[in-house]
Design a protein around this nucleic acid. Structure first.
Lengths: 149, 149
DNA sequence: TTAGGTGCAAATTCTTTGCACCCTG
DNA sequence: CAGGGTGCAAAGAATTTGCACCTAA
């Protein structure tokens, strides 16, 4: 489930390239924070990421984590998802993908599915604007929660 | 675009029935707040709703608006959508529907589309849990924003 | 009548900002 | 070495809660 070494390596590489191209400095904080997001598939929120990076970098502040996450977001290196009533959550998977979200525990899992990437846009929507991305969000109860009753 | 009289009437009726069934009291505040959401298609946030209901009910407090909205949500009478980095927005359209969201101005428009309601759930996701709802979110730039450059 | 609902104000929670010092390029 | 980046502390915005009074059923 967790991104494998190779995936993480690719993401780090792209991160470094984009930063160089955009003239964004590669600081220890940014590298460590991006690494944390790139190595997780749990759509962590800012505070979770902060806790994780503190292990390598005990003095990093939460506000730097926020600043860095939104910077990475603006660079197109990570995306966000905001299940209502929860904190914003971050995701280093920038390939087209979709979500399964458990309405009970908040578990959010990515999945890729070519069919969903290629949905035919209804004319009604074409009349609203230019669609750039399509994301399907499937909601339900995960088996973990279902078991607990 | 705006829900027509008949739609609003139906929503109000359902609201009253559900409240009766669930033993939830029909207060002036609740009626007015639900009416405001039911009569809008703009996915207003709590503060927008507060401003709107104040016209009819100048003393209503923002916290009552919040409490009422989440109550309506828990009763299944309204749903929420949370575009990242924005406030939670509410929606009285509980029929299966999907969203077009402008990434520039935040415009969010509902659309119905049978094909999207009936998406075939991938086996991979069936292994995660029981899917209850499927919602497609199309993101792009609306024509209003595209024009402004 | 009476339990549930409301308004007020204060508390929380999450997130952002100003500023002086620091470090990458 | 210069300008972007960081940590700290404090501000801000959105949302929730405690409590005494009020009102729908």
């Amino acid at each position: 489930m967790k991104p494998n070494k190779e995936t993480v390596r690719q993401r780090m590489k792209r991160f470094q390239e984009v930063c160089k191209n955009e003239g964004v400095r590669l600081t220890f904080q940014r590298i460590t924070i991006f690494e944390a997001v790139a190595g997780s598939d749990e759509h962590p929120d800012a505070e979770t990421i902060h806790k994780a990076v503190r292990k390598k970098m005990p003095t990093v502040s939460l506000d730097t984590v926020y600043r860095t996450l939104w910077l990475l977001h603006d660079l197109g290196l990570i995306t966000t998802m905001g299940p209502p009533r929860e904190r914003v959550r971050f995701d280093a998977n920038t390939k087209p993908h979709h979500h399964f979200v458990c309405t009970r525990c908040g578990l959010a899992r990515d999945f890729e599915h070519g069919e969903f990437d290629a949905l035919k846009i209804p004319d009604e929507v074409k009349a609203m604007g230019n669609v750039e991305t399509a994301r399907v969000e499937l909601r339900g109860v995960c088996f973990g929660c279902a078991k607990k009753g």
